[in-house]
Write a protein that binds this DNA or RNA. Structure first.
Ligand SMILES: [Mg+2]
Length: 407
DNA sequence: GCCTGTTTAGCCAGTG
DNA sequence: CACTGGCTAAACAGGC
């Protein structure tokens, strides 16, 4: 029985957020974070269209996702940046597209009346599962540590720079509870705290429907009949039909190169793995700068596309048409994953076709991405774009460092 | 003591 | 109304 403030808060969270006066919202909320800079530059209050909290949750996501997707797909910054995926690459990133102030202002002004509050701190329309997945997907090796996940989320969504205890507990819970996330032990060569987390090879594209708040079906590995544990049979969508058994993470090694102790499950590395060469996700503590090696993203395997994300209410078929050929495979390798790489444009393409999928995404406006910079205007549609911003943003202030920890 | 993980429990919202 | 997926709280174990 408690519906203490926490709870009620949550329930209201969104609404509340919406109601914050921008001034408050924007300022108070991102306190000391070094990132400020990143945000500030461009427009302060991006929000245009006002949206309802509901909409927010409900459908817009696709829009965002779209952006996300794109984002991931984006020319893997890893590749382009020797410095590492997330490094302060200012100039490089900064320049590309960025809308000029005038324009921004104009736009802003236009909607000025509508918006009335910053969505910066509104809760992003993604479930923790989605966020974790994004984090994993965007990492060069397709696996990351808990702290990297935290960092990724905070970097991307200012909202999560608050109440860290609360949501981080949820993140941990999600990682443990959901079978789609599996731990990958560290190898001696990459010491540090905690294990790496990756996606279960059979998890496929959990957000097929384009909904990042709720999956249609939870991914569960089949319970070995050894233990009772409740579910078992009932679940559909189990993996390892029949003999897969609970997937053994052992298969996935951070460092595929060596030892292969466990034969058991073979796993054809869905998400990356395979990649020879050292994955080396930087160890959080030290960041030796030798990020250099960052091999090309493993994923480049196939150019698939982003799946379904951007388009909202289309039927699958429709989406498929729009989106690219689509991978035939089980969807594993090529990622049907939303946050997969390539994809980029397909999305906007799709958007265009749809003509309407408004992307309003508040969050987009949110911040990070914000800017409708290049070209398109937000209300117009075409989601994406944001992506670039994301990186830009992240890149700037995320030297990844400890900055946040303090807070 | 903090961090990482695991697990249990209750609540909520969406769906059929 | 029952189911189900997601969120939050919290207890607890282990490691450093
Ligand atoms: Mg798990």
């Amino acid at each position: 029985m408690h519906l203490n403030e926490e709870q009620s808060m949550n329930m209201l969270q969104n609404k509340a957020a919406y109601e914050l006066p921008m001034s408050v919202a924007s300022s108070s909320a991102m306190p000391a974070y070094s990132s400020m800079a990143a945000y500030t530059p461009q427009m302060p209050g991006p929000m245009h269209t006002a949206m309802h909290p509901h909409m927010y949750t409900g459908m817009n996501m696709q829009g965002h996702m779209g952006s996300m997707a794109t984002m991931n797909s984006m020319p893997p910054m890893h590749t382009m940046h020797p410095a590492g995926p997330i490094s302060p690459m200012n100039q490089a990133v900064m320049s590309p597209m960025r809308m000029d102030m005038n324009r921004a202002q104009a736009i802003n002004r236009a909607r000025e009346k509508t918006y009335r509050r910053s969505y910066t701190h509104a809760k992003p329309p993604y479930s923790y599962i989605s966020l974790i997945t994004m984090s994993i997907q965007q990492s060069p090796n397709k696996m990351c540590t808990l702290s990297e996940i935290y960092q990724f989320i905070m970097d991307l969504f200012p909202f999560y720079r608050q109440n860290q205890q609360r949501w981080q507990n949820s993140i941990r819970h999600s990682l443990s509870f959901n079978d789609c996330f599996v731990k990958v032990p560290r190898t001696p060569d990459r010491p540090g705290k905690g294990s790496y987390w990756t996606l279960h090879p059979d998890s496929g594209n959990m957000f097929e429907n384009g909904c990042y708040l709720r999956r249609q079906k939870r991914f569960k590995v089949q319970r070995r009949k050894g233990d009772p544990k409740g579910d078992d049979d009932g679940d559909d969508m189990d993996s390892g039909d029949e003999e897969g058994g609970p997937y053994e993470p052992a298969d996935i090694k951070p460092n595929p190169a060596e030892d292969q102790t466990s034969p058991s499950v073979k796993v054809e590395s869905p998400h990356s793995q395979q990649t020879p060469s050292q994955p080396q996700p930087k160890t959080e503590e030290q960041q030796p700068t030798d990020l250099t090696q960052q091999q090309p993203p493993p994923q480049q395997q196939q150019p698939t596309s982003l799946p379904h994300m951007g388009v909202p209410h289309l039927t699958h078929e429709q989406q498929q048409q729009l989106y690219v050929p689509h991978l035939g495979h089980h969807g594993m390798n090529n990622f049907t994953h939303p946050f997969s790489i390539n994809s980029l444009m397909s999305q906007s393409e799709a958007a265009k076709q749809l003509g309407e999928m408004k992307m309003y995404s508040p969050e987009m406006q949110y911040q990070y991405p914000t800017i409708q910079a290049d070209g398109k205007d937000i209300n117009g549609m075409v989601p994406n774009l944001a992506q670039s911003d994301y990186y830009r943003t992240v890149g700037q202030y995320v030297p990844h460092s400890t900055s946040v920890s303090a807070l």
